[in-house]
Design a protein around this nucleic acid. Sequence first.
DNA 1: ACGTCACGCTAAACCCATCTAGCAATCGAT
DNA 2: ATCGATTGCTAGATGGGTTTAGCGTGACGT
Lengths: 339, 339
Amino acid sequence: MPPQRATLLQVAQRAGVSRSTASFVLAGRHVDMRISEDARQRVLRAAQELDYRPNLMARSLRTKVTKTIALVSDTLASDPYAGRAIHGALAGAVAHGHLLFIGETEGESMIEEKLISDFLDRQVDAFVYASMFTRYVRVPKLLKGRPVVLLNCLTRAAKPAHHSIIPDEVGAGWSAAKAVIEAGHREGIHMVGNLAHHVFAGRERLAGIREGFGAAGIKLAGTIDCEWWPDSAYEAVSAALAGGPPPKVLICLNDRVALGAYQALREAGLSIPGDVSVLSFDDSDLAAWLRPQLTSISLPHYQLGWQAVETLLDAAGRTEPAVRRVEMPVRYRASLGKP
Amino acid sequence: MPPQRATLLQVAQRAGVSRSTASFVLAGRHVDMRISEDARQRVLRAAQELDYRPNLMARSLRTKVTKTIALVSDTLASDPYAGRAIHGALAGAVAHGHLLFIGETEGESMIEEKLISDFLDRQVDAFVYASMFTRYVRVPKLLKGRPVVLLNCLTRAAKPAHHSIIPDEVGAGWSAAKAVIEAGHREGIHMVGNLAHHVFAGRERLAGIREGFGAAGIKLAGTIDCEWWPDSAYEAVSAALAGGPPPKVLICLNDRVALGAYQALREAGLSIPGDVSVLSFDDSDLAAWLRPQLTSISLPHYQLGWQAVETLLDAAGRTEPAVRRVEMPVRYRASLGKP
DNA sequence: ACGTCACGCTAAACCCATCTAGCAATCGAT
DNA sequence: ATCGATTGCTAGATGGGTTTAGCGTGACGT
C-alpha cells in the first residue's frame, strides 16, 4: 500500500544514464564531473517523475554520516518544563537538517550503557547528554572521544572534554538582587528555599543574590529554610510569619516555593505586593497563573536545548570545550512592588 | 579516538570462517544452518574478544527493518504534561527494542510533510501520530498504508484506517458524577469551564457528567462558562458567587480552571471543602500543590503514549483498527467533602 | 563400485547509495 | 597524420551486513 520508493538505479535507467551519473547530478556535482546539460535535465526529470527520494540508510552506510543526534537524558518526566529543553534541542537539530532520537537512562548506568550502545549501533553522529536539573555528571566511557555536548550539566574536570550549556544561575541571583533594589527595597529581605548547598541551582542562585546585595551594601534580613515544594514552603513561611515582624521581600528559590509562600502570606492576611513583595525563579506556567502574577527569573530551557545542539553541530571540535552560561532574564509581573 | 568498531568480516576471519557462517551464528540460526558446535564457539569467542557490535544501518539496508519509530506531534511544548505521553511512548518503544525519533509539525502541513518525508527517508518502521490535546485529525497522505497509531487523536472516518488511543473522557465524566454522588451531594452542583462544544475533551467530559447525574436522577444546579485558564475561571466564578447563593460543588473542567476557582472561593471567604467541594480533571502537578489538595481525574498521558506504541508494535495490522479509550482514574485528595 | 543423502560450510547476490579510476570520442594543434 | 588534451560518461569497488543456492566430503545402502 505505501508507494514503492524508486531507487537511484531506476532514475538512472529512465534517464538513460548510469547510476554514477544520476548520483552526480542529484548531488549537484555535475560541474566537476562534467555532465552535459542535456543529461542533467534527463536525470532531474526522471527523478521528479518517479518522485525519487534517496535512501538515507544506504547513503549513510557509505558516507558514515547519518544526520541524526541522540539526546540522552536522565529523566524526562520529573520536571514538566524540562520538556522545553527537548523542544529546543529538536528545533536546533531540525534547523541543521538533523533528526533527533531521544532516550532516558532513569539515572541508572546499566540502562545508560545499553541505551548509548543502541544509539551507537545505529550510527548516530553526535550526542546531547542532558540532565533535567543542573548538576555535575561523569560522562560515560562509551561517549569518550565522540561529539558530545552537555546540556544542563557539567563535569568537575579542570579541562573539560566537552562543551557544557547551563543556565547562568549566579547571574540570575544578581538579577534578583538588582530587581529588588531597583524596586526600592533595602530592608526586610528574606530568602526562601532549600539553603543546604546540595543543589547546584540553589547554591548558585544564593551566591549570586548574596553577591548582588553585598555589592550594594545590603544585608539579608533572614533566611527561611524549606524543601523545593509548596507545602514545605507553606509551613516554613507560616512559621516564620508567626515568629516575628513580617518581611518586606521574599525571594523564593523557585516558583513552587513561591506558591507555598503565597498560600502562607494569604492565610496570614498579608497582601502581595502591598505588604510583602515576592520574587522567584524558574518562570514556570505557574508564575502567570498566580494572583497576583509572579515576577520570576526565567529558566531558559528552550534556549539551553537549542544552544546545546547549536554548539554540538557548529562549534564542537572547532572550539576549545567550555562551559557556556545562558542568561536568565527577569520576567516582570505584579508580585514585586515598592516598599 | 572512539574505538574502531569491528566488522563481521573481522570476526569471521578471527574465527576462521566465512562471513556467512559468522552471521548465522550471531543470528542464532546455527541450528537450521547446521553449524558445528566448534565453529559456533570460535565465532562467539571472536565476537566477544573484538567486542563486536553489528552495524544496524547495514543490517537495516538489507532487512528493511530499522527498529525505529517516529513520534510526530503537532506541538511538544504547549502543555507541559504532554511530555509524559512522549515518555510513555519512549518506554514502550524501548521495551520492544526500538528507538524513538521525535518531531514537531507546529500544526503546519508543510512542516509536517517535510518531517514525515525525512523520517521516511531514514526508513523508520512505524509512526505515532500525536496531538497534544484530544481532537479530530486527518492523517497525512504520506502515511497512507503504513503502520501508524494515532495518539490522543482520531479520524472522523466510520471505518478508521488506524488504531487511535485516546483518554476515556466520557467515562471520566461518569466517574466525576459518581465521586460527587458518593460524597453525598445531590444539590448545588455546578460545572465550571469552557462549555462551548469546540473542545473534544470538554464536550465528552460534560456529556459523561450529565449522563452520570442523569442516571442518578440529579440535575445540575448551574454552569459557569469560562476559558481554560485560571484568570478567566477566577473572574467567572467570582461573578457567579456575587450573583447568588454559593454552590455546594464545583466541577472544574481542568486543574487550571480549578486554580481560578480556588482563588475566587478563597477571596469570597468560602472554605474548601467545608463550604464548597471542588473536583477537577487532568491531575496535573498543580492538583497536589494546591491547599487543600485537589481531587482530580487523571489524564493518563503516560499510559496513552505507552499504549500507542504497544498497539503499534503488537496489534497494528493484526487487529481491526479501532478507537481505544484509556481509563481516567480518580485521584482522591482533600477538595471533595461531604455536604 | 556407485548412487544417495546428510552434513558443514561458503560463494556470491543483494540492499542502495557514493566515489575513484579510467574509457571512448571529439577537438585542436603541429 | 599524429599526438595530447578535453569532454562526457561509466564500470566497478565500497560500506557492512543478510540470505539463497549450492559445493565438497564422508557415511551408508545395495
